[in-house]
């Protein structure tokens, strides 16, 4: 469940204040695929930052499941993110000092859930993403598509409720982007997770259950019924 109440966020630039998000409300009851559309600087990433607790709102509340994350302390929000959130970045952001397998196992270890069974699940997930042969490789020798698939595995491996993706295909060629997106969507649907994805690509919006369109000060919410599940 995601509940956003009267959320506002602004930034100061010199003496000027820019309202990025103004009194925004949202309620998502069950797992959904939500796409955030908008041009650069419209506030897409700001909303994702607020949802992951990386940034704090000026006012308003954000509830993820039953936890009001906007009121959590720094360690509290980190521990919440660790357990309930998986993040996928545009530039993959794998840890270069860890192998593919260790990158994926890290969230399990952080959640103190690294055991034989969970490790096997992680291997299965990597296999599902066609990365079985790459488990011992370091990220720097993988292609962009492979790195993003590892990032997907890492975001999902600890079974979080929410997957936050910021332009996950923005740094991939068209074909690879298509493949990666389909894989991500398949797995998210299969695992019944909420996926919130910021993108410039309007074509992807047709797969979403809900689209948040950032246009200037307003966030327009549209529903595509029947896409999820």
């Amino acid at each position: 469940m995601i509940k956003i109440e009267n959320l506002s966020k602004s930034y100061k630039e010199g003496n000027e204040t820019h309202n990025i998000i103004d009194n925004f409300n949202l309620f998502v009851e069950k797992p959904e695929f939500i796409v955030i559309l908008g041009k650069s600087g419209s506030g897409k990433t700001t909303l994702l930052n607020l949802l992951t607790g990386i940034d704090k709102p000026d006012s308003g509340k954000i509830f993820l499941n039953t936890t009001e994350i906007s009121s959590l302390s720094e360690p509290g929000i980190t521990l919440f993110r660790r357990k309930h959130t998986g993040i996928i970045f545009q530039f993959f952001n794998l840890l270069p000092s860890l192998t593919v397998l260790d990158n994926v196992l890290l969230p399990l270890e952080l959640n103190e859930n690294l055991n034989k069974t969970s490790k096997n699940s992680a291997l299965e997930l990597l296999s599902e993403l066609n990365l079985k042969e790459k488990v011992k490789s370091f990220p720097d020798i993988l292609s962009g598509g492979e790195q993003q698939r590892v990032a997907i595995a890492r975001a999902l491996v600890h079974n979080p409720s929410f997957i936050i993706a910021d332009e996950p295909t923005g740094n991939l060629d068209f074909e690879t982007a298509d493949t990666v997106f389909n894989m991500l969507l398949d797995i998210v649907k299969k695992k019944e997770k909420t996926l919130i994805m910021a993108t410039h690509n309007r074509d992807l919006a047709k797969y979403a259950d809900r689209v948040l369109n950032f246009s200037g000060k307003h966030i327009e919410v549209t529903f595509n019924s029947g896409n999820y599940a």
Binding site: E74, T78, L79, R81, I87, L94, L106, P107, L110, N111
Partner: peptide, 13 residues
Amino acid sequence: REYTLMRLMGVTQ
């Protein structure tokens, strides 16, 4: 950058 990523993944300060 690695530390930042770790923090994003839920590693505490």
